[in-house]
């Protein structure tokens, strides 16, 4: 029988983490499938009661999102919708209403699925993770955390405390995905785009600091680096959009699996990147 801990404070939590090496339970949506098939760790640590890790605030040009904040809360939060629309969109597209009422942003990150919907927006928005342990805190860019499918560099004695998303006025972001159906679906391809939009004298837009992140098309989320380079500071003409879309396609390294094919995913990266760029306001 597994031990069970339900800390009420972060201090308590990091001590348990250091001493008992528990398996963490956030929303439970991924963990309980394993429990059903017989998985039992030495100890559980249920994070549900850590109120301090739940909620969204704006501080010093950063959105600070507690790791235990629900997808449903992120999707509907006015601050997220204003400063990180791609993240709100992605959160609204996770699973189903019930899953969004249970699943947390911290859980989505820790689970490290290549198809996790929140991850491409976090990459594109240059989010950082605030990791907490008994020995202190460290802040790590989200794109340095994932080492492979279902694998992260988060240490066993650490937990994700907060997700910090730069909140800058004039930053445009959006998320597009193709799933297996219109609800209860897992992404075949997900693309997040974030950039500052310059429109000198009402003319054709130029994108600055543009970030494009691709989900479900590589072992981890990847940036469409050549596409980002092409875009930087240039006039967003129809021709450029085409070039960028093709470049992004070549930045993807998809595989065939039960949800889709590599060829289709690659082609869809181009379509989604183009559609996102056409939506730029």
């Amino acid at each position: 029988m597994s031990e069970y801990f339900r800390p009420l404070t972060l201090g308590e939590a990091v001590n348990i983490l250091a001493d008992k090496h528990p398996k963490l339970v956030a929303g439970g949506t991924d963990m309980m499938v394993m429990v059903k098939s017989g998985y039992r760790p030495q100890a559980w640590m249920d994070l549900t009661a850590l109120e301090v890790l739940r909620g969204i605030s704006l501080a010093r040009n950063e959105l600070v999102i507690g790791a235990m904040t629900l997808h449903a809360e992120i999707a509907q939060d006015p601050l997220v919708q204003e400063y990180a629309r791609a993240l709100a969109d992605a959160a609204a597209k996770v699973g189903s209403p019930q899953i969004r009422n249970m699943g947390t942003i911290g859980g989505n990150i820790a689970n490290a699925s290549p198809a996790g919907d929140l991850l491409p927006p976090l990459y594109a928005l240059n989010a950082r993770l605030d990791l907490v342990s008994k020995s202190g805190r460290r802040i790590v860019p989200v794109n340095e955390v994932f080492t492979g499918p279902k694998r992260t560099s988060i240490r066993a004695d650490e937990l994700i405390g907060w997700i910090r998303v730069p909140a800058r006025d004039g930053l445009w972001s959006d998320y597009a995905r193709l799933g297996t159906r219109n609800a209860l679906s897992i992404s075949k391809v997900g693309v997040a785009l974030a950039a500052r939009v310059e429109r000198a004298g009402g003319g054709v837009a130029r994108l600055r600091d543009c970030m494009i992140a691709l989900g479900s098309v590589a072992p981890t989320v990847v940036y469409a680096e050549s596409a980002m380079d092409l875009l930087e500071g240039r006039q967003l003409t129809g021709e450029l959009v085409q070039q960028v879309a093709l470049a992004a396609q070549n930045d993807a390294r998809p595989i065939d699996d039960i949800r889709s094919t590599a060829a289709y995913r690659r082609a869809m990266v181009a379509v989604l990147v183009r559609r996102l760029l056409e939506r730029v306001e």
């Binding site: 159906r181 219109n182 609800a183």
Partner: peptide, 9 residues
């Protein structure tokens, strides 16, 4: 993984 129509489909 076996995909059937939801209300959204």
């Amino acid at each position: 993984q076996y995909i059937v129509p939801t209300i959204g489909d």
